[in-house]
Computed example of a mutant assay.
Amino acid sequence: MMSAECDLAARRPCHAMRGESHAFLTLTVADVPAAELAAGVAAQLQGAPGFFWRAPVILDFTPLPASAAPLVSAVVDLLRAMELVPAGFRAARAEIRRAALATGLGQVLSTDDEDRPSHDPFDGPPRRPTMIVNHPVRSGQKIYAAGSDLVILSSVSTGAEVLADGCIHVYGCLHGAAFAGVDGDQKARIFVKSLDAERVAIAGLYVNGLEFSEEWIGQPAQILLADGYLRMERIAR
């Protein structure tokens, strides 16, 4: 393997992605009926409705058990109905994390020890057998390997999406979008024989293909998450 490395997230100053501190509201969600939660939030908003209007909110789902996954989308819907803006989430369990990602929320990555769950968030059901796709993935198609790695033995066309909770391997050309670590696994990687993607992402952190340097187009590469950035490394043909 060649050691050349490309920091995708910081390549262009006009599209710089960096960490900053923001004073977002945080709503800790308990395992209670959605109607009860709605009543509590509404009561709090009555004190200063103008202050909270269209305010971004981080949802802390850490207290929720895996069985409460259906509550996630209900909470997001009720906040939007109250004209709040659910922007991100924290979660301790994979089932809750998958439900939150499915609503379009971004995962809040934290390095604070106090924010980390006391158990491994990826403990739970074992990974399923690797999903292997023998045919090209055409434009408009979406393939999701839930709980497993995904292997594409052909190419992924422009307008197609391939997703996996684990790693993604594309043995043809990746023209479409590839999202690895969908359930929040930051150790997931994307391996491609020929890179020309519209978008790639790992654990919710993404970069558009327009940000790729020309030297990487059509090249074999792996994409990984390191030190909070998406990075690219060359692999042998």
Rank of each mutant, 00 (worst) to 15 (best):
E198P: 04
Y206M: 09
P220D: 07
E198F: 00
Y206C: 11
G204L: 05
L210R: 11
V207F: 05
M232C: 08
L205P: 00
R231C: 13
E211I: 10
L224R: 14
G204M: 04
R199K: 14
I202H: 01
L224F: 15
E215A: 11
I217L: 14
G209R: 01
V207I: 14
A203G: 03
R231F: 04
E211F: 13
A203T: 01
D196F: 06
R199S: 12
R231I: 14
E233I: 11
Y206G: 15
L230S: 08
P220A: 12
D196L: 06
G228K: 10
W216L: 15
I217K: 13
L195G: 07
F212Y: 13
P220C: 10
R199F: 00
Y229A: 15
P220V: 09
E214N: 08
M232V: 15
A201W: 08
L205S: 11
L225P: 05
L230F: 03
A203D: 02
R199P: 03
W216C: 01
L230R: 09
I223A: 06
D227H: 12
F212A: 06
A203H: 01
P220W: 05
D196W: 03
I202L: 05
Y206T: 07
A203F: 03
F212Q: 06
E215G: 01
N208Q: 14
D196A: 15
P220H: 07
I202Q: 03
G204I: 04
L224H: 13
L205R: 14
V200K: 03
R199G: 02
Y229K: 15
F212N: 07
L225C: 02
Y229T: 12
Q222L: 12
L224W: 13
Q222D: 09
I202F: 02
A221N: 02
M232G: 10
V207A: 12
I217R: 15
Q219P: 00
L224S: 11
P220T: 07
S213D: 12
F212M: 13
D227G: 12
L205C: 09
N208L: 15
R231A: 07
G228L: 08
I202S: 02
Y229W: 05
Q219E: 11
L205I: 15
A203Q: 01
E233Y: 11
R231H: 02
Y206Q: 11
G204S: 07
Q222H: 06
L205A: 12
A197H: 07
D196R: 07
A203P: 04
L224G: 01
A221R: 01
F212E: 03
Y229G: 06
